[in-house]
């Protein structure tokens, strides 16, 4: 259970949002919506523990982020705007090294299987700089599939993917939710229908943040 209480964010001394509270239960997905610059990415970075929240409290499994400390990283996947891939390494190397940095030693066999799932089996050994934008995104998503983590935080994950890829990502997220994970996504388009129990959080400029009340919020 991810609990957010009275969160606020500011950029350049300007309040983006404040008084934000919600609760996400296992299997739920939160779709963060809002115009450019309302603080969607700031919110996601806070939920990923990358930037501290000046006020309020975020807790996961009844332990606040501060109590989780460095171990928080083993609970979540964060997918930012940028792919976090090294250009000179192949998708396979990126995946293996990425996993090792998160404390997991993948065998090459497992890694190749994951790359096959994301449709990069034939490109596993090419340097990433030779891949297309969509293929890079797939290589990034391979990390999420390879390391099981209960929280997925994804900033515009559909950008750059072709139609087939978008559908596949929808299916992966749905599978993640069905296995008890939670997901927090931003997207300017509607989420694919196969994703279950989506709640919408609409951020508004300049300051007011309103969560669309749904039954799922209560906890």
């Amino acid at each position: 259970m991810l609990q957010v209480q009275n969160l606020a964010a500011a950029r350049g001394g300007r309040v983006l949002f404040s008084g934000l509270s919600f609760t996400l239960l296992a299997g739920q997905c939160l779709h963060v919506q809002g115009a450019n610059g309302v603080g969607k990415t700031s919110l996601l970075k806070m939920l990923a523990g990358l930037s501290p929240s000046p006020v309020g409290r975020v807790s996961w499994q009844d332990k606040s982020y501060a109590e989780w400390g460095d171990d928080l990283g083993a609970q979540l996947h964060y997918l930012g705007h940028r792919d976090a891939l090294k250009d000179t390494l192949s998708p396979l190397e990126n995946l293996l090294i990425g996993a090792r940095l998160h404390g997991v030693r993948l065998t090459e066999h497992t890694a190749l299987q994951v790359l096959q799932r994301v449709g990069l089996a034939c490109h596993a050994d090419l340097p990433v700089r030779q891949l297309s934008q969509g293929q890079k995104r797939r290589a990034t998503l391979a990390r999420c599939l390879a390391l099981p983590r209960p929280i997925w935080i994804m900033d515009e994950p559909w950008v750059g993917l072709d139609l087939a890829g978008q559908a596949e990502l929808g299916a992966w997220i749905a599978a993640h939710l069905n296995s008890g994970g939670i997901a927090i996504l931003t997207s300017h388009q509607l989420l694919p229908e196969q994703i279950p129990s989506v709640s919408i959080l609409a951020l508004h400029a300049p300051n007011a943040a309103t969560a669309v009340p749904e039954a799922a919020w209560a906890c």
């Binding site: 990358l50 964060y78 940028r82 792919d83 891939l85 940095l101 404390g103």
Partner: peptide, 19 residues
Amino acid sequence: HGDWIDGSLEQLLLAPYPP
């Protein structure tokens, strides 16, 4: 700089070890 520009720095900081 390289890790910052391609987003790897965030992943490195998210690793479950002391930064």
